[in-house]
Write a protein that binds this DNA or RNA. Structure first.
Length: 186
DNA sequence: GCCAGGATGTTA
DNA sequence: AACATCCTGGCG
């Protein structure tokens, strides 16, 4: 299980270290294979840059709290708030390789290949049943949710996906060997 | 495998 | 108007 101070480091470091970790969420579980980091200050792609409500969220919540929002009118996206001495930020969970609760994921996702069940930020939340009710939930205080870091994992970095600002930052991280990425790194 | 197009609604 | 996406169908 994560230590209580894990989300008090830089969000870029958190995003990198979460690759390979096992995420458990209300009966479902899987290996985190893709993440992205956002900085609350100075990052034009971060919601805090253009959404006052996101800045309020950072002020009023603690490290480890879930920031869940709806995207393109139909997909929930799941972030974890990071608050550290060097600055605040978010880690977006972009893809997970399912390991438990796969039947429940299949029911929620409909007819897709198993490797695509949670291979994308919107696919992941749908597979795991995450929605706006989970906005503000905290991993470190919940009994049904946890993250356990892997001892070692192969990690590759690349530019973040689906954004139009700050595309030069290499803040997308992933396991290059996983078959459950939202998109290849090569 | 890649690309185009449409679904869908919140935020500011 | 933009948007941290996904699915389908066309093409080869």
């Amino acid at each position: 299980m994560l230590k209580a101070n894990f989300f008090t480091a830089d969000s870029v470091e958190c995003a990198r270290k979460l690759i390979g970790a096992t995420l458990e969420w209300k009966g479902c579980a899987g290996k985190i294979v893709e993440t992205e980091a956002y900085h609350a200050e100075g990052d034009e792609a971060c919601h805090t840059f253009f959404r006052p409500s996101a800045r309020v969220f950072v002020d009023q919540h603690q490290a480890g709290d879930a920031y869940v929002y709806i995207n393109y009118g139909m997909h929930w996206l799941f972030n974890i708030l990071v608050k550290g001495p060097s600055g605040n930020g978010f880690v977006l969970i972009r893809a997970v390789e399912p390991s438990a609760g796969i039947e429940a994921m299949r029911e929620r996702r409909g007819s897709v290949q198993d490797k695509l069940l949670a291979a994308g930020p919107g696919r992941f939340t749908k597979a795991f049943g995450i929605n706006g009710d989970d906005h503000g939930a905290n991993f470190l205080s919940s009994k049904t949710c946890s993250i356990t870091l892997a001892k070692n994992s192969n990690v590759i970095a690349g530019p973040r996906i689906g954004i139009s600002k700050a595309t030069d930052l290499m803040w997308r991280f992933g396991d290059p060997d996983s078959k459950c990425l939202s998109k290849s790194f090569r």
